[in-house]
Amino acid sequence: MPHDHPHPTSRDHSEPRPAFDKLLSQVLAKLDHSGLLTSAEVTAQIEDMEGRTPTEGARLVARCWADPEFLDLARKDLPAAAAKLGVSMPAHPVFLLLENTEELHHVVVCTLCSCYPRPILGPPPVWYKSRNYRSRVVVEPREVLAEFGTVIREKANLRVVDSTADCRYLVLPLRPRGTENLTEKELADLVTRDSMIGVTNVSM
């Protein structure tokens, strides 16, 4: 039997998939036509999500570092803490803070798709959705972190958190040493998107 057709070797969301694009546009056209979901509503939702950036997450992290009461609230109820910064988060899925400590480092992945705390970080980066990251970080997390330039101390525990169902996670990175005199704004400027996914640490 001839075997001359190509097999898909990757299912990265970043790759073009014309058949799915066509299906999507036809479904959207039907929905729009029926009035169930208008293209204006779809556009508004996309614009809302794309208007959200890791800056919101960075402000939240800086406030957690600077204000113990706020940290306590973020631990108990992350959306309530975000609301204090003017960031709205839906009641579902469940949004949670994963606190990095000297002894424990968290790194987040969604091996099934690309679950991500979008309301507080915006759309996920392309690598987060890549098959490479999703398949490798649960098998060889220390190697993957090393590729981001991140070395976890031998003695520190590493916990990979797979966002498989109803929870979305924001990593609270460890506050770097020597930042005691910085303002909250200066602290927020240090916080990167990748540190809130857990693939890097925050440094001065």
């Binding site: 649960v138 060889e140 997390p141 220390r142 525990n157 590493l158 958190v161 797979d162 498989t164 169902a165």
Partner: peptide
């Protein structure tokens, strides 16, 4: 425990994985 989940796991024996399961 990642070292129990994967044969020849190269990381630290205390490394863990946390997953949401119904």
């Amino acid at each position: 425990n990642l070292a129990e989940l994967w044969v020849n796991y190269s990381g630290d024996p205390t490394d863990t994985l946390q997953v949401e399961v119904y």
